[in-house]
Amino acid sequence: MLLVQNIRLSRILRNTWKVDLIMIASCTGAYLIREYLIAHHFEIPVIIPSLLGTAIAFFIGFNNNQAYDRWWEGRKIWGSLVNDSRSFARSLISYPSGSDEISRRMICRHIAFLYALKASLRGATDEGLSKYLTDEDILEINSQSNMHNALLNIQARDLQKLSQNNQIDGFRFMDLNQMLVRFTDSMGMSERIKNTVFPTTYTYLTKVFIWLFVVSFTLVISQSAGVYSIFLGWLIGFVFVSTQINGMSLVDPFRNNSSGVPLNQITRAIEINLLEMLQESDIPEPVRAINDEYIL
């Protein structure tokens, strides 16, 4: 997630340089075609790039709105996980009477659940979860395809043990179980965003329309601007392309890049909070911003 208000031009150019080269080549080709093939035969109507520009504005507006909705929903889901995790740990510390061994194990397992969910959303393997699990837990979750869901199943069994041992009453059992249900909901909503592909027709047609617009605009403007139409065509196309790429960077909010939801920071913050609530001495450091510009 970006932390600064101003984005460096170099970062924008790193994201768009390939498209920039294609646009420059297209503008150059359009200028040469107009200059040496069609200049003395007919003129390109000005209304063509005008209509294409209007269509592009609608497509980019739709794409960016939908992309931001996906990003914001992902951020809200993990914001809820932060609050629910703190409440879950607080209840496990305060509710049970007698030995706190099961409660401590459940809180540590919850940290592992968050790391497993984060690794799944980012398509990575997170080694940080193993230190919070017993050998039996690791053996069980490794036999299942959905590790984070398997961890919730183990949590439910331990919660049942607390009830059977009379360490919590029925009302507190229902309260803790409801929190497990909320974790399942957050997990499912995150997976839904991750597994739902953004309609490729919108992104594809937007790219095609931008290319057609750049070519037609260069053909029209070259009638009065001459060779400078190559630069002007690229400049106008750069505005559309950079706007479209900016929106598409939010389509997958859990991607491990500067535009994604900062899952590393969020999971580490929850980990620190829960370990402090357990009065542990080995507390990890918070995730720091990279170059004071963004955080992952």
Rank of each mutant, 00 (worst) to 15 (best):
L133R: 08
I141V: 10
Q144W: 01
S163T: 13
D135K: 11
D158N: 14
L162P: 08
K131D: 09
I138P: 03
M147C: 01
E140L: 13
Q160E: 14
E140W: 07
A156L: 15
I138F: 05
L162D: 11
A150G: 08
D135H: 08
I138M: 00
N165H: 13
L162M: 10
A156V: 11
L133F: 01
L152W: 04
Q155I: 11
D135T: 12
N142K: 04
I141K: 02
Q144R: 15
E140I: 10
Q160S: 15
T134P: 08
N153P: 03
E140H: 12
L139N: 13
Q155G: 14
D135N: 08
S145P: 06
L151V: 02
H148E: 01
L139G: 05
L151C: 02
S163E: 14
L139C: 10
E136P: 02
D135I: 12
R157V: 06
R157W: 00
Q155N: 15
L133G: 09
L133S: 04
Q160W: 11
N146L: 06
T134R: 07
S163G: 11
N149I: 15
S145V: 08
N142C: 00
K131A: 10
N153E: 02
D137A: 07
S145R: 12
S163V: 11
D158I: 06
K131N: 11
D137Y: 03
Q144D: 06
T134Y: 07
K161E: 11
R157I: 09
L162A: 09
S143L: 06
T134D: 09
D137P: 00
E136G: 05
L162I: 10
L151M: 02
Q160P: 01
Q144L: 13
S143I: 01
D135W: 04
I154G: 03
I141S: 05
A156H: 13
H148Q: 05
T134S: 15
Q144V: 09
I138W: 07
A150P: 01
I154L: 05
L159P: 07
N153T: 11
S145D: 14
D137K: 03
L133T: 06
A150T: 04
N142I: 00
L159T: 08
L159E: 08
N153A: 09
I154E: 00
I154K: 03
L133P: 07
Q155C: 13
S145N: 15
N149D: 15
H148L: 01
Y132H: 10
N149M: 15
Q164V: 04
I138C: 03
H148Y: 06
S143F: 00
N153G: 07
Q144H: 07
Q160C: 09
S163C: 11
D158W: 12
L133C: 10
E136D: 10
E140P: 00
Q144Y: 06
S143N: 13
K131H: 10
L151D: 05
S163N: 13
E136H: 02
L139E: 13
I141T: 07
S163H: 15
L159Y: 08
R157Y: 00
